[in-house]
Design a protein around this nucleic acid. Structure first.
Length: 462
RNA sequence: UCCUCAGUAGCUCAGUUGGUUAGAGCAACGGACUGUUAAUCCGUGGGUCGUAAGUUCGAGUCUUACCUGGGGAGCCA
């Protein structure tokens, strides 16, 4: 007989049908005569109830069925006599694939702390919370590809290993095949990378943007969606050393087009989750974050506020708040400032634009004032900066001037500069932190709990 | 990396001004119960108090260093 997924069975009306399900035991209850086994196969957050007669299966077999045990159950799909579920399986045979020693199995019927579950990341996907998060993570990933594909964007695969530093900022992980116990040296004592695998120093990418621009200046509209690596010693609930990023890059888009796309994109993703992940979101709304569903609906139904950095600074200066960090034009906005604007002043997502050039990356397009650049940051409640983007500087001379002003290694950007020499075009793009998006959609407060196997300082166990 | 809080049973925690035999709830295990819903009820076992040093007659409790984790900050997505 062919296996049926529990998700399918729970919405089935074909009672009387013989079915086969396979999954893991969540709980077992019962008495001398009858056992109730809640079985979950990961297809949905809901379990199917398997009803087993002790007289048919014997106490010995049922004794072996404990929380975590993997089973194959055949039986008849019947209307449930009890409350809490419409259908259940009256078991006719039960095969145990894998027993699960109840004394040492770390997952119990009751809830666990997120901190404890991180220590057993190999088993935590079996919990309701992580099952829900991982299904939603999948759904959003799928929605990202669907959104861009439907709009005619092309998925561009930018390299993971790179010889350039995309923004001149941020520590990078080195990639090498040199013998770390016996590092070759040049005559001057420097590491001799000429005999390394690539013949030069290489790193794991911190962003696919620069290569993404090359794609946009040929294919029109592209996006990247891949892992990104930052060797920063960041210990916060919003940072990972390995995270996934989506970076659309569009020829002929100016900053307003870029903002329109960013807003439409994130609203699409949230709406997709609301439309396709109802059971999981409802669980998270009940167990993790009571305001989750209301917040998701609010974001999809309301326009994001758009305002310049300069106007935002005015609001902050005029407010009665006491700041730990001073506010003033030219200073970068601190977390407390962003939080005030998003959560107290506007109470909705906010897009800030036209930041001072000094606090932004070299590739952003200079405004006519010569002081600000065409940057945009999308700020979300609870998350902070979820998107950072800009219109790119398409003028060769201005771009070169910025590289020199910021003392960046001009030589390694030769191919990037050539795009401005050969048929340059106005273009824009942005980066969305995938895990931060999942945090917002799931209500999970720590980014380590929205990726299966988080990579953070001192943690690469699984 | 900085600030701050924490680390005691499988899990979540309590443990008094330092005091002699370390506590609870849940889980597990044994039993009871004719359909349960995180079942319920009765009972049982379970501890190198994060690691190392120090102070003291005596340290879970005080001191120092280190390790690990949470929260906040910085960096950013």
């Amino acid at each position: 007989m062919k296996q049926t997924k529990i998700r399918t069975l729970l919405s089935s009306h074909n009672t009387g049908e013989n079915v086969l399900v396979k999954g893991w035991v969540r709980t077992k209850r019962g008495n001398k005569n009858i056992a109730f086994i809640a079985l979950n196969d990961g297809s949905t957050i809901k379990n199917i109830q398997v009803v087993a007669d002790v007289s048919v299966f014997g106490e010995n077999l049922l004794k072996e069925i404990t929380t975590g045990t993997c089973l194959a159950v055949t039986g008849k799909l019947v209307e449930s006599q009890g409350q809490g579920q419409n259908v259940e399986i009256a078991a006719t045979s039960i095969d145990i694939y894998g027993k699960c020693d109840a004394e040492t199995y770390p997952l119990q019927k009751k809830g666990h702390s997120m901190e404890f579950l991180r220590e057993i990341a190999h088993l935590r996907p079996r919990t309701n919370t992580f099952g829900a998060v991982l299904r939603i993570r999948h759904a959003i990933a799928f929605a990202i590809h669907k959104y861009f594909n439907d709009k005619g964007f092309f998925y561009l695969h930018t390299p993971i290993i790179t010889g350039s530093d995309a923004e001149g900022a941020g520590e990078m992980f080195h990639v090498t095949t040199l013998d770390m116990g016996n590092v070759p040296r040049t005559e001057t004592g420097a590491v001799d990378f000429s005999i390394d695998f690539f013949g030069k120093p290489t790193n794991l990418t911190v962003s696919g943007q620069l290569e993404g621009e090359l794609g946009a200046l040929a294919l029109g509209e592209i996006y990247t969606f891949g892992p990104t690596f930052r060797a920063e010693n960041s210990n916060t609930p919003r940072h990972l050393a390995e995270f996934w990023m989506i970076e659309p890059e569009m020829a002929f888009y100016e900053l307003n087009d870029n903002m329109d796309l960013a807003e439409d994109f994130v609203k699409y993703l949230i709406r997709y989750a609301l439309d396709n992940c109802h059971d999981d979101l409802e669980f998270l709304n009940n167990m993790i974050d009571k305001g989750l569903l209301d917040r998701l609906r609010f974001v999809t139904e309301n326009e994001f506020v758009r305002m310049t950095y300069t106007d935002a600074v005015k609001i902050l200066v005029d407010s009665a708040e006491k700041w730990e960090y001073p506010v003033g034009w030219g200073k970068d906005l601190q977390a407390e400032h962003e939080r005030y604007l998003v959560e107290k002043h506007f109470k909705r997502p906010l897009i800030l634009t036209d930041y001072p050039k000094e606090i932004k990356a070299f590739y952003m397009k200079m405004n006519d004032d010569g002081k600000t650049v065409r940057a945009m940051d999308v700020l979300f409640p609870g998350i902070g900066e979820i998107i950072g983007g800009s219109q790119r500087e398409e003028n060769y001379d201005k771009l070169l001037q910025r590289i020199r002003e910021m003392n960046l290694p001009e030589r390694i950007y030769w191919w990037y500069l050539e795009t401005r020499k050969f048929g340059t075009a106005p273009h824009s793009g942005f980066g969305l932190g995938f895990e931060r998006m999942i945090q917002f959609v799931t209500g999970m407060s720590n980014i380590r709990d929205v990726i299966p196997f988080p990579r953070t300082p001192k943690n690469a166990e699984f």
